[in-house]
Design a protein around this nucleic acid. Sequence first.
DNA 1: TTGAAAGCGCTACCAG
DNA 2: CTGGTAGCGCTTTCAA
Lengths: 343, 343
Amino acid sequence: MATIKQIANLAGVSRGTVDRVLNNRGTVNPETAAKVREIAALLNYTPNKLAKTLAVKNRNIKFGYVLFSSTNENPFFDDVVAGIKKKTNELTEYGISVDTCFSELRDPSNQVKLMDQLVDSGINGLAITPINHPDVARKIKELSEKGIPVITVNTDIENSGRLAYVGSNYLESGKTAGGLLRLISGGKANVGIIVGSMDILCHSERVNGFKQALEGYSRDIKIVEIVENYDDDFLSFEVTKKLLNKHPEIDSLYLASAGVYGACRAVKSLNLDKKLKIISFDSVPTTKLLIEDGTIDATITQQPHVQGSKPLSILYDYLVLNISPKNEKYYTNHEIKIRENIN
Amino acid sequence: MATIKQIANLAGVSRGTVDRVLNNRGTVNPETAAKVREIAALLNYTPNKLAKTLAVKNRNIKFGYVLFSSTNENPFFDDVVAGIKKKTNELTEYGISVDTCFSELRDPSNQVKLMDQLVDSGINGLAITPINHPDVARKIKELSEKGIPVITVNTDIENSGRLAYVGSNYLESGKTAGGLLRLISGGKANVGIIVGSMDILCHSERVNGFKQALEGYSRDIKIVEIVENYDDDFLSFEVTKKLLNKHPEIDSLYLASAGVYGACRAVKSLNLDKKLKIISFDSVPTTKLLIEDGTIDATITQQPHVQGSKPLSILYDYLVLNISPKNEKYYTNHEIKIRENIN
DNA sequence: TTGAAAGCGCTACCAG
DNA sequence: CTGGTAGCGCTTTCAA
């Protein structure tokens, strides 16, 4: 492990100069710089992260986090918050503070306002679950150009200038669901699909992936109908009930987004629980119970904890250690949970 | 974030004294000690990990790792090694070195010899995939009593004095397999089980868990026969072939340990691939291929990467940060992989 | 029993 | 453009 001190000695300059060269700050005589660089390469120099972090304390770095408020219909974000909290504690010890605030679920202007507030308060980087709206995209671009890196979480907005995305690959998650149905249906099924809204990209991708995984089985696995519940449990209850009444031939349900509990209540009210194969997403408390009592056969999770913590790690690497994310998309794993491995 | 310096100032003593009190080293006037402790508690003092690690550099800490050599029949350990390597690099930067060596798979005396060598070379902590043999257990106890903490990996030896175990809960993994079969069989199956050896606890636990998960289904899911392959692919081929010939009613295979490839070759040689439901463990390269081509329906993994890295993290926490492991058993997750989410 | 000081590796600031 | 120095929080050693 080579150190700046060693390089300085070998190059016959001071550690300050080496620091300037290696971190491109200040100005250094090109020849000196070349020499330093050469020696650094020779010694295979890698900066010590601990020391770097420790020394950066007085820079008073601050991150902002804008998250969908989870008090609404989707407690999924509770698990994300847990991930944020854990990472925040770690960063606090490093002298980095994290300001987390919650935005309305369907109000872009509210998100923009929160972003502005965070910028005014002096954040150096931002993580956000962005609403897919031009105003939000524009604001992300504005921050990025200002030198404030932005990480999108859970939902991406491409071409917004964001530094990276952390979250599910929705097409893949849909494929996993399709593969799972193929297995548990024995290759023969009449499927009803319940989804938030086909206008939301994440949701339609989950449906598309599902279909893709079942190509070649289309003779025996039929999608009977796709209905929308707008992520609302009560609507979900209604549309599911109607769907099942309308199509008694349905033997499988694919719950492609939120509203899982409402849909299952409909299933139960028709005494169809354990008669239908049901696949869902995420592992919120109500879903866990439905897995445990056998109503839902399997659910596919997307590492909510990682979705909370990883964006902060990326910002830390980028701003403190000068390490850019290796990929612009960091996809979380899709974990299949059944009664026996859900905890 | 309170610091030692702050506490020292408030207590009117030097930082050295505070350090002595808070870390129980040297001797300190009881009254001074009490005062310091009080203030520390008041300020909610938590030591800064970065600073601690940085300062400990010159203690020249060294860990040993004894692992089953993966050149043998089970490339599972290749993934464990990857985890070890990654963590080792991180620790190297902290001034901690890791000496990893590989032991014969069935030779306890060889393991004991390697442990002795590592101790002689001055390790401060050890991680090991122990062979379940009294000599190894005794040596683990010896090291522990000498003040060298030992972490067991992948396989545990309880009551050996080891500090912690990192690895699968085999009973749970068996249950997960059982639950999975319940789902993909539609609740009706004649199962053949192929296992390394029922004399090996890990293996028999996987069978027991499997049975437990299927209790209540015993009318329709029948275990036809359990055969042993001693984790050898060629033996596995033979016994599987014999089993399937003997019991043409078998429609499902539970491959409870290694020898997955051999078993599947037998299935293919009888033209039964895709006619049998097959569940296996781990995700070694050959298994991946068999998942992709549809021979194996699902495989259950056990976070090999974590099994490699986590033991080193525990040793680091224990020896550098003075943090004891929260639990004596750290169980890895059982992840269900099918064609669509195996990568 | 205690204090003072040096050092882990890096950054930042002030002179020159 | 460069050197010197102080400091991040903790440990350790040497004196007192």
